[in-house]
Design a protein around this nucleic acid. Structure first.
Lengths: 167, 167
DNA sequence: GTCTATAGAATGATAGAC
DNA sequence: GTCTATCATTCTATAGAC
């Protein structure tokens, strides 16, 4: 993904068109502005996260929902290392979505699923740290070379420890 | 900081010059290329991190070093929320420093100080998660509004939990 | 839908005066 | 050291042919 390679602000429509294999004009036929492209990419990533939440929410009780969402989010982050980090960390997207109600709603749902229905308002920091830890760890210089399956199991273990859950 | 606001790739020399209050030509008198500016900013941030490590290393035993580095890194991240995230997450800097020996050496030192002298190679992921969690949490949408002092104490508490340390 | 061609602004970088 | 002026290139975006 180009946004993850050069940052959103450092990616031009020329690059995007060349990567796809068409001209700029063809890209502009699908999207009217660069902002629209950014939005489409961010929304697609949010779709994936929401699917993970939906699947977890289909579980029976709160504990199973929580376990499912932890595994699901870790899987998503490992599978799409760079993209998840871009969504959460790129300053252009951050500015675009700082007041976006969908992003806040999805993060709120994640918070509820992870921390349980009786979570107070103080749980936000814990959830923030959780998502930051996962999305940041998978692209960290110290971990860049790590194999997917080892990364997955270790991340789940550390996340559970962060949440004071039994491993 | 402009790099934190628009990303490194999305920041132009025009913007930098205007922010300082001079012309582009004046900036080019100090730095020969844009890459040189990026490097200077990243090095300054690394300097700060290394100073924190130096102070922690001056403590007596391993446990005190570890406690000092946790508090120092959290303080640094809260004090410079955006900048720390930029150094660790911006793809342009990441590419520039992916094979930089100084960055790897500093992160290695951090790993040693946090995990102790008897830490195995598996500790890298734990340290990666730690730095990612701290640097990512402080700029997270769910936490952006949080006051500095509360953020500081809560982060230290959660970091210690992540490391299985007594709070 | 995709192309060529182009407009007008912004980009990184340089030359030369003060 | 800082300025104005400029260079070649690239940028976002549009017009119009096929």
């Amino acid at each position: 993904m180009l946004f993850a390679e050069h940052g959103v602000g450092g990616t031009s429509l020329q690059m995007i068109a060349e990567r796809i294999g068409v001209t700029k004009a063809a890209v502009y036929h699908q999207y009217n502005t660069k902002a629209e492209i950014i939005r489409a990419v961010a929304e697609a990533e949010l779709d994936r996260l929401e699917m993970v939440l939906d699947e977890a929410d289909a579980e029976g009780d709160a504990a199973r929902k929580r376990d499912a969402v932890i595994i699901g989010v870790v899987d998503l982050a490992v599978e799409r290392r760079r993209q998840v980090g871009t969504l959460l960390n790129d300053p252009v997207i951050a500015r675009m979505y700082s007041k976006d109600e969908r992003l806040l709603r999805v993060l709120g749902r994640l918070d509820q699923l992870v921390m349980g229905p009786d979570a107070g308002p103080g749980s936000a920091l814990e959830t923030a740290m959780l998502t930051a830890a996962i999305s940041g760890a998978v692209i960290h210089p110290l971990v860049a070379h790590q194999k997917d399956d080892i990364l997955r199991s270790e991340l789940v273990r550390l996340v559970r420890r962060l949440l004071s859950l039994p491993v």
